[in-house]
Amino acid sequence: MSVEEQTLAIPAHEHEEHPKHKKLVIIAWSGELDKVWPQMILATTGAAMGMDVTVFFTFWGLFALVKEDKHITGENWMQKMVALLDRPGMEHLRLSKMNFAGAGPAMMAKLAKEHNVASPGELLKMAVDMGVKLVPCQMTMDLLGLKREDMIDGLAEPAGATTMLMEAQDAITLFI
């Protein structure tokens, strides 16, 4: 069916068809490029749909929020080792498959540019502009040695599981 054949105007009664859930909670657990990307796509799209969006960053998801000029995070050798083995920052994410020592993500970035797909970093900036609440998990920040000043501006106050579950009570919840 071509677009022309589709109904041009939506019937009046469908205007009232608002979604049941006006809230979206994303638990951003993964720190890999191919998972951070959908985290950011869904967060910005939810905001565009007028939903109240909260992204709760925990474990590996936190590293995507680390400032680009920050190479090593952590206070002790174990925490530093985590950052050393897997450089933090939105521009240094690995792929969960076909990483090929960084060749995979570079190829993905090139493809994204060719297809005018916004990068996760660009989407993150849009999410901040659109009022998406970005909440870092306090416990995993402590565990991984991430300090508030290691991370980008525009984040909400760090919080815990209770805050997240409270937010999630009347929301669509995604664990990515």
Binding site: A9, A48, M49
Partner: peptide, 17 residues
């Protein structure tokens, strides 16, 4: 665009290609 209009309540008055 159809889904977005339905969910936000904005009206899609015309759609062509």
């Amino acid at each position: 665009f159809n889904a977005w209009c339905r969910s936000t309540g904005n009206e899609l008055v015309e759609q062509t290609e």
